[in-house]
Design a protein around this nucleic acid. Sequence first.
DNA 1: TTGTAAGCGTTATCAG
DNA 2: CTGATAACGCTTACAA
Lengths: 348, 348
Amino acid sequence: MAVTIKDVAALANVAPSTVSRVIADSPRISEETKQKVKKAMEQLGYHPNFNARNLASQSTKVLGLVMPSSKDVGFQNPFFPTVLQGISEGAQEKNYALQMSTGKSEKEVLDAVIQMVQGKRVDGVILLYSNVDDQVITYLKEQRFPFVLIGKPYIDIEEITHVDNDNVRAAKEATEYLIRYGHEKIGFIGGSPELMVTVDRVTGYKQALQNAGLTIRKDYTIHEEFLREGGQGAVRELMALEQPPTALVVADDFMTLGVLNTLDELGISVPEDISIISFNNVLLAELARPPLTSVDINIFELGYQASKNLIVMVENNNEPTKRLIISHTIIERLSCTKPNPVRGLERN
Amino acid sequence: MAVTIKDVAALANVAPSTVSRVIADSPRISEETKQKVKKAMEQLGYHPNFNARNLASQSTKVLGLVMPSSKDVGFQNPFFPTVLQGISEGAQEKNYALQMSTGKSEKEVLDAVIQMVQGKRVDGVILLYSNVDDQVITYLKEQRFPFVLIGKPYIDIEEITHVDNDNVRAAKEATEYLIRYGHEKIGFIGGSPELMVTVDRVTGYKQALQNAGLTIRKDYTIHEEFLREGGQGAVRELMALEQPPTALVVADDFMTLGVLNTLDELGISVPEDISIISFNNVLLAELARPPLTSVDINIFELGYQASKNLIVMVENNNEPTKRLIISHTIIERLSCTKPNPVRGLERN
DNA sequence: TTGTAAGCGTTATCAG
DNA sequence: CTGATAACGCTTACAA
């Protein structure tokens, strides 16, 4: 059917192995035949068959991507397209392809991963999320299969290569940013406490309060099951307190959108009545009303470093496990200002 | 290294070919040996090697996904995660895997596709976008390689299997919806006129106006290069007209977010001063302020049907080209109401 | 520097 | 119904 290495060999008057060497850009081959072969490949429009190559070389030049189960609303988070871009760029640079594995349930996801790995479809795997007590991680470790996690592992942190932000520091700085504005009653709204990001960000938030000598009120920290309905009640509760916060740290831009809505319904305006700083700095942050002051966590870079490093792990066997910390920056926009004294007293 | 078909054969006391038949669930094989072999596979923890299988069978059970070049802002549109979910589900049902191809420029994307196809990495391809004069389509057609397009092709519409909405009807209905509220001055904001979606939606918008006997004003139709800065100027211009529209048809929820912002800056409120109906009904539409009345185009289904149909094309050679139209529905929320008579006069 | 030949793990074609 | 055996297209010792 298609043109194979043999056809090229025949046309160039060399052995198939020579052609193979040219493809691999082997050093020990004369410039002359190299050119001759290349010309023949050109002429015939030759493209190597990956399946054959993979089979022979026992590797695929493909990275597997494990997404959260698709029923997860988090899937809709603009975080994913961006991290994908980063991964994709890192992979492309080294000529790796990307294979996605998804599933409707956690079990389906695990099965898909097993197929990928055992079927030798991929050389390594990137996990785009991390659940508590994750089966996939357990499996991958047990198989000693190369993988990197984007985010922070729950367990065996020293044994799992991962790329993450310093989320506690980021949250600490975000909170301090509000404190510098003079806020003392600062609330925290985050996602499921089962997510490490949430845990880290709450920690940082509390550290900042503590350092500043502010009291940490338990009723100031709430967890919504990610936006939508969830947000409504939570924010309402928070604002109905006798001493409602004058500023909010919200763990995710997308979530902030929901918070903004509820606030609007309550007739509370941002930043006049309440300041908000949030996280991730996705395109949305810029488009929100008001534009959000947000901690840019460099999503693209998270993905880029993940694939970059996975590839070294794959290519140099026995790479040490690493922890890569991506930097963050606070992007100032219009959602923060000084506390409103009037509003602060209003309910005393 | 790993356990192969031979090991299974040895343990089960049959020939490798028999094992292969069991895997393929061949009908002509005794229930007895089938069980025997299955037990052996179980016992050894056997998993077929896809590379070997692909090589021998000349097919991969993998579908290729072609995304727009990643520098494209459109990449950030929440449209993608959703359509991916649909594609993924259709693929999973038939045990197909998904391989992504991306690139920073159009050329890189084309190269990636060529690699996929020539390298026999995939059995078919799904295009998640369609550019005018697209190289990828040209290439795929020329190779007679199975592919389906999500959206509407620019050319050779009868020869390209695609799944799309009836965007002109959808836009017509959306516009009529506004007309029914009593609006007569209706503007249209859409993306690049190089995109078929935009073209179709403008067409539908104009049809509705015409049918209703309303004049089609040229200065009422504007195209922004997708949100952000673009939106600003355009919306301002529109609202600065002597007779500014009292309602807007906006071609994309994400874009509407930008429009909403500019409107807010201008002190124009939705829907009191101006009504807006938009398209896609992504999660964002629900979260916007006010919640957006939006045409639900069934994004998931677009993806689902795309992979479903691509798989039949791949498996039954010579399937006829099809055009699949996915239904749409207007989801009413709070961004539309009757025209505000006061505002209408204000500038006369 | 280049050629020969033995795999890589399956599937597919024939026989039996 | 099952077993040999030849592909599939490429890589990689081992020779030359």
